[in-house]
Design a protein around this nucleic acid. Structure first.
Length: 287
DNA sequence: CACCATGTTCCTTG
DNA sequence: CCAAGGAACATGGT
């Protein structure tokens, strides 16, 4: 689920469904995921509140609520970690195996499920302060990006995962953006020239926008009863597609042909995480 | 058993 | 103080 496009699609899906609904119960199965808040703190803050809005910031979900007619807003921060999912479901059904938190909304429950327990749902919003510019806003541009990249000896791929540089890119779309920009992932961030920074800026925007658009066209199965559980990295599960229609051009495609030149895609490890690239289209040495 | 997995934070080292 | 690297978190798939 959890890079910017997946969170964006989830937020667009949930926002109109949550609006004006009131929280009537709060049940926490994984107390670690509400840290630094206790279960009691969450209940005290949320019981009786109604949702007024849901927004995305980077990979975070920002739920806005209001207690009765009180103008004082309450905000709740969600993060999906690696395997988290939010979805609405009829109440009184048996809880799924990895249910972390359930907000009872009357006829429906908002279920927060997370197998690996890396996700978060709390009243602590401070994580948002550390986020860099929004990649799809004018605040993210080659000049701003260049400043962030300029002083770092770290590889450009690792820099793309740094949420203070730009907020929302994860391991999959980092490889995808570098492929589109034809930049080698191992290039030290400070060595990118202006042209490359411009190319990467637009590649990031293009990759994220495209993923949102494609994700929005897929009939999502947020309750997780289907074959893909509402994930959309790998295309529509039900429909056959040709190689040229693959959503991801390089990620998880080691040994398969580059969609541009047919060279075999390579996989390397950077900062303990996999990177995929085409050694021909993304050469280490400038020509 | 081994290794891998869409993420963030904390701790250590230099 | 900062940058960079690695472990930790917890579980499941191959």
């Amino acid at each position: 689920m959890p890079e910017l496009p997946e969170v964006e699609v989830l937020v667009r899906h949930l926002q109109p469904l949550l609006r004006r609904r009131t929280i009537r119960s709060v049940t926490v199965f994984r107390p670690k995921m509400t840290r630094p808040n206790s279960i009691a703190q969450l209940k005290r803050a949320l019981l009786g509140c109604s949702f007024t809005d849901l927004q995305r910031r980077g990979k975070y979900l920002v739920f806005s609520l209001r207690q009765g007619r009180s103008p004082k807003p309450i905000q709740l921060l969600g993060h999906l970690g690696m395997t988290g999912r939010f979805y609405l479901r009829k109440q009184h059904l048996p809880m799924p195996r990895h249910t972390a938190v359930v907000l009872g909304l009357g006829a429906l429950d908002l279920i927060f499920e997370d197998t690996r327990v890396f996700g978060r749902l709390s009243l602590d919003l401070t994580a948002l302060e550390r986020l860099g510019p929004k990649p799809l806003s004018p605040g993210f541009n080659p000049a701003v990006f260049a400043v962030a990249l300029h002083k770092s000896a770290q590889s450009v791929k690792v820099k793309l995962l740094d949420q203070t540089v730009v907020a929302g890119i994860g391991n999959i779309y980092a490889s995808e953006a570098l492929f589109l920009a034809r930049i080698a992932p191992t290039l030290p961030a400070r060595d990118l020239n202006l042209k490359q920074i411009q190319a990467l800026t637009s590649a990031i925007r293009r990759v994220l926008r495209l993923a949102i658009r494609r994700g929005s066209t897929i009939p999502l199965d947020w309750e997780g009863t289907g074959p893909r559980d509402g994930l959309f990295y790998y295309g529509r599960p039900d429909q056959t597609r040709t190689a040229g229609e693959e959503r991801l051009r390089v990620y998880d495609r080691a040994g398969r042909p580059c969609p541009r030149c047919r060279t075999s895609i390579h996989r390397i490890t950077q900062a303990s995480r996999s990177t995929y690239f085409c050694p021909n289209c993304q050469p280490q040495i400038l020509c």
